[in-house]
Write a protein that binds this DNA or RNA. Sequence first.
DNA 1: TTGAAAAAATTACTCTCGGTTGTATTTTTC
DNA 2: GAAAAATACAACCGAGAGTAATTTTTTCAA
Lengths: 147, 147
Amino acid sequence: MKAKTPNAIDAYVGERVRLRRKLLGMSQVSLSESLGITFQQLQKYEKGVNRIGASRLQRIAEVLGVPVGFFFDEDRQHTAGLRLSAETDEVAHFIASKEGLALTRAFIAIEDPNIRRKLLALARSLGSSQAVTDEHEGWERADETRG
Amino acid sequence: MKAKTPNAIDAYVGERVRLRRKLLGMSQVSLSESLGITFQQLQKYEKGVNRIGASRLQRIAEVLGVPVGFFFDEDRQHTAGLRLSAETDEVAHFIASKEGLALTRAFIAIEDPNIRRKLLALARSLGSSQAVTDEHEGWERADETRG
DNA sequence: TTGAAAAAATTACTCTCGGTTGTATTTTTC
DNA sequence: GAAAAATACAACCGAGAGTAATTTTTTCAA
């Protein structure tokens, strides 16, 4: 008999739901009613036959009085073993850094859109240090008010 | 025109996914590929047209380097350990915006630390000039979210 | 022990919506 | 300003989310 389970994660989540429910001495009927579904459907969730949608998951967490994260094995999260592409990782890392945060805050404080654009253009040209590629430094064609 | 969205929670979750994705400077294609689905399907998730199943949600959280709880509106303190959410929504949203991402990328491309510092200083003075018109450059202390 | 009532499991069925492909539109880049 | 990348929009299809019915297991008082 092939286990028709969507996948192991869903089975695990369902198991956690059942665990928490029993911990509260709740019956399937009771929980399913407060979820607005049949108890048979709840059974599928707990067995891992069907996967639980995000909104429903939140509702379950609400009823059972636990954070959503309770249903997941979050251990792998804080291991910081994020597999991100090189560039993405660089972006994320910078944003999280003191320097990145400072830059963002400083930039947000600039209200004038024109100054913002010019500063961005400056940063760009400083980055591609080799060649500015355009003689005419009119770094902005005055495009119409976009945004 | 009634929004075809399953419900508000799913829309919110999708929004959070998009926010985090953009924060990392990731494209829909890139993320969807690492999820093993089409980018169109990812669009549905982000728009809240389809709800995200538990297992997929965990996978997304994994790829995006956040705990699953990040996608839900429950108590923000869970994500306290996460670098970005320590900041205000304003900052987060800016970083995720087109302008913010462009700025970040441009800045990253600048290798010389001195130029970086000077550019940051410039940004600060440009911002504070409107708000404070101050004399002494105490920009060291400019971390009030709302001036 | 028994037997009835609650809780849980299993099966059969329907129709929504999760997921795909295909095309159009916008945005970025050179 | 065109080519390419990123995103949006639409139509279609089948797995699986959800229901209903029946069966098995558990519980517990008489």
